[in-house]
Amino acid sequence: MKTNKNYIYETRMEVRDYECDIQGIVNNANYLHYTEHTRHRFIRSLGVSFAELHEKGIDPVVARMHLEYKTPLVCDDEFISRLALRKEGVRYVFTHDLYRAGDERLCFHAEVTLVILTNGKLGPSKEYDEAFAKVIPNF
């Protein structure tokens, strides 16, 4: 696994006590919430409204996830969620790297593949392509 230096978005978050398990570390499922929250903030920063697109029948859905847990986060850790994006055919592949803020140690790495369903059918999305072209030239 190689960390990606072509990040196009980042946001900071903090681990909350209820996200930790009996061992005092973040429960594995919560890392998925962190990556989803990062994608939502990123897409919203581009002026895209999930609700408006959904009303038009345009829905992004997760098709695949590859996850790597590196260093556990614990209660009150502040972390930086960084995101990169590439397109493969009709798929949008998001790279997510979560770093502990205090020492920039990689805690979690994920490749999350999204596809767009328009009125229930898989296909390209002019709306998402145009939004992502704002931050990735020649997208």
Rank of each mutant, 00 (worst) to 15 (best):
Asp21Met: 09
Lys2Asp: 14
His66Arg: 13
Lys2Tyr: 12
Asn27Arg: 10
Thr95Met: 15
Thr71Arg: 14
Leu67Ile: 12
Leu67Cys: 10
Ile116Asn: 14
Ser81Arg: 00
Lys121Asn: 01
Lys56Met: 11
Ala84Val: 14
Gly24Ser: 14
Ile116Gln: 13
Asn4Gly: 04
Leu73Val: 06
Leu67Ser: 14
Leu106Lys: 06
Ser81Ile: 07
Ala29Pro: 09
Cys107Ile: 13
Thr35Met: 06
Tyr9Ala: 14
Thr71Ser: 04
Thr95Gln: 15
Glu36Cys: 13
Asn4Gln: 06
Ala63Arg: 03
Arg16Asp: 12
Val62Gln: 08
Tyr69Trp: 05
Leu73Ser: 01
Glu78Tyr: 15
Val62Phe: 05
Gly120Phe: 07
Gly24Trp: 09
Ala29Met: 05
Tyr18Thr: 05
Asn28Tyr: 02
Tyr34Lys: 05
Asn138Ile: 03
Phe108Gly: 02
Gly47Asn: 05
Lys126Asn: 13
Phe132Gln: 06
Leu117Cys: 01
Asp103Asn: 07
Asn27Ser: 11
Asn119Ser: 04
Ile136Glu: 06
Ala51Arg: 08
Arg44Gln: 10
Asn4Phe: 14
Val62Arg: 03
Phe132Met: 01
Gly57Ile: 01
Asp59Lys: 00
Leu98Cys: 06
Cys20Trp: 02
Met1Trp: 09
Leu53Val: 11
His66Gln: 09
Val15Asn: 12
Gly120Val: 07
His33Met: 03
Arg41Lys: 11
Arg44Pro: 07
Val48Gly: 12
His33Pro: 00
Val26Gln: 08
Arg82Leu: 04
Leu67Gly: 11
Tyr34Glu: 01
His66Glu: 07
Cys75Arg: 09
Phe132Glu: 02
Thr38Lys: 03
His54Asp: 09
Gly89Asn: 11
Ser81Gln: 00
Glu78Ala: 14
Phe108Glu: 02
Asp76Pro: 02
Glu127Gln: 12
Thr71Asp: 09
Ile25Ala: 02
Cys20Met: 13
Leu83Gly: 13
Tyr7Phe: 12
Arg39Asn: 11
Val62Tyr: 06
His109Ile: 07
Lys5Ser: 11
Tyr92Ile: 08
Gly89Gln: 09
Leu53Cys: 10
Gly123Glu: 01
Ser81Lys: 00
Arg44Gly: 04
Glu111Thr: 03
Thr113Gln: 14
Asp21Ala: 10
Gly102Asn: 14
Ile136Lys: 11
Val135Phe: 09
Leu122His: 01
Gly102Ser: 12
Arg64Thr: 04
His40Val: 11
Val26Pro: 03
Asp17Leu: 06
Thr118Val: 13
Tyr92His: 02
Arg44Thr: 10
Thr3Val: 05
Leu46His: 02
Leu46Thr: 03
Asn4Trp: 13
Glu19Met: 12
Asp103Ala: 08
Arg44Lys: 15
Lys134Tyr: 13
Pro137Gly: 13
Ser125Ala: 13
Tyr92Arg: 12
Arg41Asp: 04
Gly123Gln: 07
Glu104Thr: 12
Ile43Met: 15
Gln23Asn: 15
Phe50Lys: 09
Gly24Thr: 11
Asn27Glu: 03
Thr35Lys: 00
Glu14Tyr: 04
Tyr34Gly: 05
Val135Thr: 14
